[in-house]
Structures are given as C-alpha cells and as structure tokens.
C-alpha cells in the first residue's frame, strides 16, 4: 500500500514564470541572490543563538572593566599617534578589544564551518552551481557583518561606560572593521579547510588566537614591547593582527594609517587565497567519508 500522503500531486513543472536574465545581469544576479541568502541565513542563526552574542560581548567588556582597571596603575602610556594627549589604559585597549571581537568571531565562524561540514550543510553550499570562491566570500562577508554589528554594540556599551569617540571616528571605523573582519575570517576559513574534525579545533584556537592576540598591540604598545624584548617587538610588528588593531585605532580617531591598511589588505588577500586553495575540490580537503 502506498502512503497516500506521499502521492504525487500536480506536475513538477507546474507553470510559473521563469525569469531568464541574459548578459551581465544574468551572470551577476544569481551571485547577488546567493550573497543575500547567505547573509540572511547567518543573521538568523546569530539571532537564534543569543548566548553567542552575549559571550562575544561579555569577553571584551570583562577585559575592559576588570583587566584594564587593574593595569591602569601599573602601565604608563606615552603620547604616541594617533593620541594627541595622555591616554588612560582603558581608552588604549578599546581598539584592541574591537579587534578581539573580530578575531574570536572569525575563528568561531571557522569552527561553525567545520561543524557545518560535519553536519552536512556545508555540502549544500559547495554543491551550488555558483563559483566556489564566491560562495566562500559570501560566507566570509556574512560572518564579518555580524562581527561588525557586535563591535558597534560593544562600542555603545563603552560609550555608556564613559569612553567615547567622535562621530567621524565611528564612521571611519566601518571600512577598517570590514577589512579586518575579512582578514581574520579568511584566516579562519583557511584553517577550517585544513581541519578534518571538530575535535582538532581547540588546539588550533590555542595556537592561533592566543598568540595572535597577546603578540599584538591590542594590550600593550609596540614601544612597551621593545623595552622588554626586541624579538617580541619584531614578532608583534609582523603579526597581521597588530596591523589590524592599529588600523582600527587610527580609524577610531578619524585618522588614516596607510601602512596598517596595506598590510591588513595583503594579509586578507593571502588568507583568502589560501582558503580558496584549501577548498579546491581537486585538493580533496572537503572530502569526508560518511
């Protein structure tokens, strides 16, 4: 006996008006439709995971309120660009904490990619007829936009706390966050292509996130590092996260740091290229036996 609820009803090719777009628009529209869908999906997932949002906000706030309060007395900061005057430690670490949100989210997004792959929804994305590099960029852009939203929420809280920037600073910050988010997300994407199992991810977090964060200017200025060790100073200078934090720092004060922008862009392109290479079907990194 056949299940009556599964009887065929109507034709698969029921009439609807197929919109056939030709030329350049026909090539671009499907890509934009997919971009919008991927951003919408990631946003909805984010809204449904409120704990993720709270965690992302609590982490930098704890650093600001607890860590910075303790360090204020211990750490003296000299007047270096973009600062025009003496700066308290709380004010100094805000750009680094913005970077921290992007860094943790970039890595968390790559963790969700590994998770997606384990669950299978990544397969759905990768079997779309759109170019794979475009699909990866869409995914990256979606997670970056969510991270940026979190940074602005964090800055709203810091404003209530008493650390405020000029309207121009908040505005100029946006492209800086976009570049930084794409760079860090690209790194996460490249890592996710190399991670076969979710269990391996914790190790990567420890070996990537913490060194990147602590060996940067997020918590201490470069000159302070140089005082303790030239080697540490050099490592910090080479760390792309340092450049990203400086880009954010200058942007928050309405200034432009060309060197930081250049290095962040270069790192973004390199990481993105690595992830496209990592997800190349001929490399077989996405293959998983089920």
């Amino acid at each position: 006996m056949r299940d009556p609820s599964l009887q065929l009803t109507g034709s698969l090719h029921a009439s609807d008006t197929d919109v056939v777009r030709k030329g350049l628009l026909g090539a671009i529209m499907p890509a934009l439709v997919a971009l919008r869908a991927i951003i919408t999906r990631e946003s909805l997932r984010f809204v449904r995971q409120r704990s993720r949002f709270v965690a992302a906000l609590v982490r930098p706030l704890l650093w600001l309120v607890v860590f910075a309060a303790g360090f204020r007395a211990a750490l003296g900061l000299s007047i270096t660009p973009p600062y025009q005057t003496y700066t308290t430690y709380e004010v100094y670490i805000v750009p680094g904490l913005c970077g921290m949100i992007l860094l943790f989210n970039g890595m968390q997004s790559s963790l969700s990619l590994v998770y997606d792959r384990e669950l299978g929804s990544m397969r759905l994305l990768l079997t779309s007829p759109l170019p794979r590099w475009w699909l990866l960029i869409c995914r990256l852009l979606a997670s970056t936009l969510i991270s940026i939203l979190q940074v602005y929420v964090f800055l709203s809280v810091t404003a209530i706390y008493g650390i405020r920037f000029s309207p121009l600073g908040y505005l100029v910050l946006l492209p800086a966050l976009l570049v930084t988010g794409m760079m860090l997300g690209g790194l996460g994407l490249a890592l996710s292509s190399a991670i076969k199992q979710l269990e391996n991810f914790a190790g990567v977090m420890n070996f990537v996130i913490f060194p990147m964060f602590f060996l940067s200017t997020a918590l201490y200025p470069l000159w302070k590092m140089a005082e303790s060790s030239e080697l540490l100073h050099d490592i910090c200078t080479l760390n792309p996260f340092t450049q990203a934090v400086e880009l954010i720092r200058f942007a928050l004060y309405g200034s432009f740091n060309g060197v930081a922008l250049m290095w962040t862009c270069i790192a973004a392109v390199v990481f993105l290229a690595l992830s496209v290479w990592g997800y190349d079907p001929a490399r077989g990194l996405t293959r998983r036996k089920t």
Binding site: D16, T17, D18, V19, M29, P30, A31, V33, A34, R36, A37, I38, T40, R41, L124, L125, S128, P129, L130, L135
Partner: peptide, 14 residues
Amino acid sequence: LTYFAALHGLSGKL
C-alpha cells in the same frame, strides 16, 4: 527551501 533556491539563483516570488 528559499535558502536553497537562492543558492541556485532563484529569488523572490519565483
């Protein structure tokens, strides 16, 4: 369903 449709370039009413 509409997410999947979008991955194949279909959007809106269609």
